[in-house]
């Protein structure tokens, strides 16, 4: 392999990896905020993202709703749906006596429900797509080619992450979420409504998933199984430290770039195992994740 090709592979691999990594990062962010504030690993994350994609498809393609209306409508409906699930299902499951694994099983139930609903709609039999919200065309960055859609995906993802960090750091609702994440009992004692905060967190998580779906669905294809991307988001979250929001973002970009570089320099067959190799390396070298803080040893 000559140097010119190596350089081309590096440039294109990093550029394309950052675009797909941005989507993994968004989904990882959604997973981490839910985990931090409710202690639930949301195994329905991929299916929420899938359902949001199909919802946008139904609105734009089937019901011919104008795009300017379909986008906020999709985000709003998914936010409400996620919040409702937390309020109606998770609250009841957690109020019952039992182990916390029931909450995880409830999210698995949601994932099956959403898949079933899409299959039942009759549109889940073949890959589908909806028109790109961005005009066709590409720009060259060095030797790497990125479409306008790629640039919009990257820019919007970064904007959503920045907005989320601002909200999490500087607003009252964000501070309440952080407080609940740190110590639930103490947060309740100072007057924070746990149920309201947890519902807000699920709504935010749903909203972020909907944005990720709206961004990436025109680039990828809609299938009932498209939620498996959440596996990569979980990988990103683990690499970043699982409880760290910046870690989730960095983990997303690492996974996206690593997938492409491994595919280009090692083998296309190795693309699917790359995230798991990265997880193993991180767990061996830094078990708490890249930004997961220091290892805490509890003495008993």
């Amino acid at each position: 392999m000559d140097l010119e090709i190596v350089w081309l592979f590096v440039q294109q691999g990093v550029a394309s990896g950052l675009v797909s990594g941005a989507v993994y990062a968004l989904l990882a962010l959604a997973i981490v905020i839910v985990y931090r504030t409710t202690d639930v690993a949301n195994f329905a994350q991929g299916e929420i993202y899938m359902a949001a994609s199909y919802l946008a498809f139904f609105l734009i393609v089937v019901f011919a709703v104008p795009v300017w209306l379909a986008i906020p409508l999709t985000v709003l409906i998914v936010c409400c749906g996620a919040a409702l699930f937390q309020r109606v299902v998770l609250t009841r499951v957690s109020s019952g006596r039992g182990v916390s694994v029931n909450l995880v099983i409830a999210t698995l139930g949601l994932s099956f429900l959403l898949k079933g609903m899409v299959r039942f709609s009759g549109f889940g039999d073949a890959p589908r797509s909806f028109p790109s919200l961005v005009p066709d065309g590409a720009v060259m960055i060095g030797d790497a080619s990125l479409t306008y859609l790629d640039l919009v995906i990257l820019a919007t993802s970064l904007l959503v992450m920045a907005l989320f960090f601002w909200m999490f750091t500087y607003t009252k609702a964000g501070r309440a979420m952080r407080a609940v994440g740190m110590n639930r009992r103490a947060a309740a004692l100072v007057g924070i409504s746990l149920s309201r905060v947890q519902m807000q967190v699920w709504a935010f998580s749903g909203g972020i998933s909907a944005v990720a779906a709206l961004l990436i669905a025109p680039k990828l294809l809609l299938t009932v199984e498209m939620g498996h991307v959440a596996t990569l988001a979980f990988a990103a979250a683990i690499v970043g430290g699982f409880t760290s929001l910046p870690g989730a973002v960095i983990g997303g970009f690492i996974i996206g770039v690593a997938e492409n570089l491994v595919g280009l320099f090692i083998s296309s067959r190795a693309i699917v195992v790359t995230p798991f190799v990265v997880i193993m390396l991180v767990l061996i070298l830094k078990p708490q994740g890249l930004l997961g803080g220091a290892v805490r040893v509890r003495k008993v």
């Binding site: 081309l8 592979f9 294109q12 691999g13 394309s16 990896g17 797909s20 990828l220 498209m226 991307v229 996206g256 997938e259 492409n260 491994v262 595919g263 280009l264 296309s268 693309i271 699917v272």
Partner: peptide, 9 residues
């Protein structure tokens, strides 16, 4: 597969 950059390039 969701990102086919590597095989196509």
């Amino acid at each position: 597969i969701t990102d086919v950059t590597a095989p196509v390039l």
